[in-house]
Design a binder for these strands. Structure first.
Length: 763
DNA sequence: GTTGCGCAGATTTTT
DNA sequence: TCTGCGCAAC
């Protein structure tokens, strides 16, 4: 029997309410995974559900793994293999392979990743003689992706957003036939193909509906329309559907996630039981109150009221830095300080909005000899040499994978260059066949009878190269068919293709790294062989395209570990006792893209900020720089609007001043500071140099910002902005902390400012 | 087929 | 400012 005693009342309900539609809105740090795991354990243990009758869908492999492990821990002796806790994509891929014949796919289809999809889009443009300057392939791809995210597949009665008269609709159809020709499916297509399968073959759907008695979806706020439709179909019969999500943590709309899935769930399932997990077990009261306050500004939400029984905790530090360098220095010094006070590095994290911000932070952490690691970054499987090897292996599995073939036909050089390849491609398109089939036929026609390919002008040398290539791949294919171990096939590919010696011919530093990567790949394959039930080459390939979490268990540094650096997106789902949110400036966080991207874009930024804040357990630092080097220019963006949304009583505003700046100065950013200080005064500038500077933190009491009833800069006043020069207030609204002014400058430009942040004074 | 120059563009990336 | 890419010249 499952022990429910450690659950709170709502969590308990979420476990026990097994039948019918349930939506669990689980706030950050509310014990979501624990609840889910208990629910599943309850179904299996107390309700005697057979493991294969349960389907739990997640977004990331990491989440799936974690849940599986925890359940295994709860129910010793459970046959984990029969538990279907998997990602949407892996679930669909698996289903499609076993039902491939229905859709005219063959079960060895390749899964194309984004890069490969883009390559197709590009080649479609090329084929039409359109330069990538006129139309960015990415636009085509987003269009196609958009359709798929909405559940569209060719020939389907149209879903939302698809219109055959769309400018790019023709590309969509062509793209799909290209995929088909390559016996390939892209990420979005994995989902839509299953929808298609279910719609066209109700019997198949019926089978799956009967199999899964309970369907559970994690991170529901991240589902797109297609995934939602899929879920609806799967649970159509029994309606035992449980979705778990948090609309406030929906940060992937740009990837197709549709927040309406969560907002409108009750419309689709009117009898749904909605449960809100509102108690936070992670963070201090201060952090929860601050984060709640920020997120409340959003309108697109169901509304939860987070609370916590945790202690009040420390105040949040808002740290005003002179520039981005000083910000990085601060992070390093503060990190060191915390470390000396007994906090281990692995309990600290730095979150930034965009990857580019990592560099300066890294530099200063290095300077202070602080262990850190950057989470995310260049993916292992995206490295050239790795993709090359994978292409060989993919071609072995799926001969129609023309993208793989064209990638490696001349790597190492075989004299089959772009021109020859182009000829072959044209031939393949005309014959509606694959590159491989064409090449094979040409080679055959050489040897004996066969078709006549004399219209393709290829030199004898090239033809013999092609012949050798065909032999090579065919032999390797035979190995795979005879179930030779993937690692062995890999080694054969590496050496017999000549790739290894081709690399070794170079002796530079880069090559060395590449060879190491190739060893690493072998490691990965071996590891796969040890863990997989049936270690096949195609299984390995599928695992790595659908599981990008690449990093083979990061060898954790003993004792104190490392400070984690990551984007806010990367931070979702994690927690740290001490967290730094850096670059909290307008146009940085929120990103400039969202600043003029409409209200819903801004709401997503706000959710991001909320996610960032709620990662912190004990202490949260929010830092911003007055001036920041952006696109080669120093920009003065002013503090993020999200800082302003944190109640003042919860933070201490700290202004850094370093000893190299002799002048005693005060900030002009907050209304609570002295207005005479000009942050842009060159004489006070910190140099972008390497000299060691020691910062003193000047604490400014967070005095409540009482509101003035008179605007400071009424309409008509003449003012001077330290960056934009002199101008006149054309319009003014609000007063005190909310006062905003519209200024027309001497050069005619009009700009709007928050008075409390803008460096403006009366002329 | 490689090298190099010039130019545009520059968030986020669970699969 | 930095990078990645397309295209032109060797």
């Amino acid at each position: 029997m499952v022990n429910l005693s450690s659950l709170n009342p709502v969590q308990k309900e979420a476990v026990l309410k097994t039948d019918g539609p349930v939506m669990i809105l689980a706030g950050a740090g509310s014990g979501k995974t624990k609840t889910l795991v208990t629910r599943i354990t309850y179904l299996l243990d107390d309700k005697n559900l057979s493991p294969h009758q349960l389907l739990a869908l997640t977004f990331s492999n990491k989440a799936a793994r974690e849940m599986r492990e925890r359940i295994a821990h709860e129910i010793p002796g459970l046959d984990i293999g029969s538990l279907q806790i998997t990602t949407f994509h892996a679930f669909c891929a698996r289903l499609l392979r076993s039902e491939a014949n229905f859709l005219g796919l063959s079960r060895n289809f390749t899964i194309y990743d984004e890069g490969e999809s883009k390559a197709i889009a590009k080649s479609l443009l090329e084929r039409r003689g359109i330069s990538t300057k006129e139309i960015n392939p990415y636009e085509i791809l987003s269009y196609i992706d958009g359709l798929k995210n909405n559940g569209y597949y060719p020939g389907r009665d149209m879903a939302e957003g698809a219109d055959p008269s769309d400018e790019y609709f023709g590309y969509f159809e062509e793209y799909e036939s290209e995929l088909h020709r390559a016996n390939a499916v892209d990420f979005g297509g994995l989902i839509t193909a299953v929808i298609q399968l279910f719609e066209k073959f109700p019997d198949v759907l019926n089978r799956y509906q009967n199999r899964y008695h309970y369907v559970l979806v994690d991170e529901y706020q991240d589902t797109n329309r297609a995934q939602f439709e899929l879920i609806k179909m799967l649970c159509g019969k029994r309606r035992n559907i449980c979705v778990v999500g948090d609309e406030d943590q929906s940060i992937y709309s740009w990837r197709g996630a549709d927040i309406r899935n969560i907002l409108d769930f009750e419309k689709i399932f009117p009898d749904v039981q909605v449960l809100k997990l509102e108690q936070n077990y992670r963070s201090s009261k201060t952090i929860i109150e601050a984060a709640s306050h920020v997120i409340q500004k959003n309108t697109l939400r169901k509304g939860k009221q987070m609370w916590t029984a945790n202690p009040e905790g420390d105040e949040i530090d808002i740290v005003e830095c002179f520039n981005d360098k000083e910000e990085a220095e601060f992070v390093a010094q503060e990190t060191a300080k915390l470390f000396n006070a007994g906090v281990s590095y692995k309990e600290m994290a730095v979150f930034y909005r965009s990857n580019a911000q990592a560099r300066l932070i890294e530099d200063s952490l290095r300077k202070y000899k602080i262990n850190y690691r950057v989470v995310g970054g260049v993916k292992f499987y995206e490295r050239k040499e790795i993709k090359d090897m994978l292409s060989y292996m993919r071609l072995i599995i799926n001969s129609k994978d023309s993208l793989a073939l064209s990638r490696i036909i001349n790597v190492p050089a075989r004299g089959v260059g772009a021109t020859s390849l182009r000829k072959l491609e044209i031939e393949a398109v005309n014959a509606n066949s694959s590159l491989w089939d064409i090449i094979e036929k040409i080679v055959d026609s050489q040897r004996a009878s066969g078709e006549d390919f004399s219209h393709i002008k290829l030199s004898a040398k090239i033809k013999s190269s092609l012949s050798e290539f065909v032999t090579l791949i065919s032999e390797l294919r035979l190995l795979d068919e005879n179930k030779v171990k993937p690692s062995l096939i890999y080694e054969k590919v590496l050496h017999e293709s000549g790739y290894h010696s081709f690399l070794k011919a170079n002796k530079d530093y880069e090559t060395l790294a590449r060879l190491e990567n190739l060893d690493e790949l072998l490691n990965a394959i071996t590891q796969f062989e040890e863990s997989a039930e049936v270690p096949t080459l195609s299984g390995f390939l599928e695992t790595i395209t659908l599981d990008t979490s690449s990093e083979f268990d990061e060898a954790a540094i003993p004792n104190s570990g490392e400070v984690s650096l990551m984007t806010v997106h990367g931070a979702k789902g994690l927690e740290f006792t001490h967290a730094f949110v850096v670059g909290a400036e307008e146009n940085v966080f929120p990103s400039y893209r969202s600043v003029d991207g409409g209200e819903s874009a801004m709401e997503e930024e706000r959710r991001l900020f909320y996610v960032a804040m709620t990662r912190a357990m004990k202490k949260l630092y929010v830092t911003f720089a007055q001036g920041r080097m952006l696109f080669g220019q120093v920009k003065f963006n002013g503090p993020s609007r999200f800082i302003d949304e944190i109640p003042e009583k919860l933070f201490t505003w700290k202004k850094l001043s370093n000893t190299s700046r002799s002048t005693e100065f005060h900030s002009s950013w907050g209304g609570k500071h002295d207005d005479n200080y000009d942050p842009y005064d060159q004489s006070q500038e910190t140099k972008y140099g390497d000299e060691e500077v020691v910062y003193q933190i000047k604490e400014t009491a967070a005095t409540p910002r009482e509101s003035y009833h008179q605007p400071k800069f009424p309409k008509g006043s003449k003012v001077v902005h330290s960056l934009y020069g002199s101008g006149k207030v054309e319009d003014s609204e609000g007063s005190g902390a909310d006062e905003k002014v519209l200024i027309k400058f001497a050069d005619g430009a009009r700009k709007k400012f928050m008075v409390k942040f803008a460096p403006i004074v009366m002329a």
